[in-house]
């Protein structure tokens, strides 16, 4: 029983991490129908820049966190300007945007490697004080609780932001139809830019939390989560913010439960991707997605 409880906690936690990564990812897709494959690189740079601020500039993490998040947001603006805006008018912008975002991801990763080296680096010990609780044989750390809470909070705040605020409404209008939004007087380019800003800032924040928890930041750390992030946004329903978090939890739990039930871990990733495959076939719109645009 303890075993299963601990595994559920593990799944809840890693699922929240996937969700955090996926929220920003899905936001851009929801608005532009474009996959931003540089999201993982922004995630990485967010974490590394926060590390630099703490280690080299000697800041407290509480100051470094917002600064690095802002930096990641600015990277998003850069991405939009360089890799997406020039292609927007093109007929094949879906594919070419994919490639230009890959090019940016390669450049970002090269910069990260040039500045920080290829080795894993970590935040200095004691950057945040971590408490470890053992409750009825289940181990939980304060960082884990923090990350789950941040994921939940983000889900609520972002959903409210999109539904209630002026900018949020404009974002939704652009997502529905750029033309219609423009006719209604929405500054489409501004809205797209701010979507990238928010999306990338979220990605950067996720990178910092990831780096803090796992004590290992490296230029290629985005790669292993990129594929899972893709799976998560499909699972949750592309463009859906609560869906990204729920998709993350579902993916995390499926991984953990595979290990718990089979007792071995060989099939962990295979099961997760098979589930993804099955969901695409049975319910292509994902758990919480809008159905219309995905099927022939």
């Amino acid at each position: 029983m303890n075993l299963l409880a601990q595994q559920l906690v593990n799944g809840l936690f890693i699922g929240s991490v996937y969700g955090l990564f996926a929220v920003g990812y899905t936001l851009v897709f929801g608005v532009l129908d474009i996959l931003n494959l540089a999201h993982a690189a922004v995630f990485t740079l967010g974490g590394l820049v926060a590390l630099w601020l703490v280690q080299t500039a000697g800041m407290s993490i509480w100051l470094a966190f917002p600064l690095a998040t802002l930096f990641a947001g600015l990277l998003g603006l850069l991405l939009n300007q360089v890799a997406f805006a020039p292609l927007r008018k093109r007929a094949d912008s879906q594919f070419s945007g994919l490639i230009s975002s890959i090019a940016m991801a390669i450049i970002f990763e090269a910069v990260a490697m040039g500045l920080f080296g290829a080795r894993s680096v970590r935040f200095p010990q004691g950057t945040v004080s971590v408490h470890i609780w053992h409750i009825a044989g289940v181990t939980i750390t304060s960082l884990q609780v923090g990350i789950v809470l941040v994921a939940a909070l983000l889900m609520v705040v972002l959903t409210l932001f999109i539904q209630r605020t002026r900018i949020g409404k404009a974002i939704r209008a652009v997502a529905e139809s750029e033309r219609a939004a423009m006719l209604l007087g929405v500054n489409v380019n501004g809205i797209i830019a701010s979507t990238f800003l928010i999306s990338s800032a979220l990605g950067g924040a996720a990178g910092i939390l990831y780096g803090l928890y796992f004590d290992a930041l490296a230029p290629d750390m985005g790669r292993s989560i990129e594929l899972k992030g893709l799976a998560v946004i499909i699972l949750g329903g592309m463009g859906s913010i609560p869906g990204a978090i729920l998709g993350g939890l579902a993916f995390g739990l499926s991984e953990v439960l595979t290990v718990a039930i089979t007792g071995t871990s060989n099939l962990r990733d295979a099961v997760a991707f098979t589930v993804l495959f099955a969901i695409l076939l049975i319910r292509p719109s994902g758990l919480l997605g809008r159905g219309k645009m995905r099927e022939a």
């Binding site: 879906q94 594929l227 695409l280 076939l281």
Partner: peptide
């Protein structure tokens, strides 16, 4: 089964297939 999916969704389904083959 997968070819009734379009765009990114077809890409994802084939991607999942690819991962399963690799694993």
């Amino acid at each position: 089964p997968v070819l009734r999916l379009r765009g990114v969704f077809l890409a994802m389904a084939t991607l999942a297939f690819g991962e399963v083959v690799r694993i």
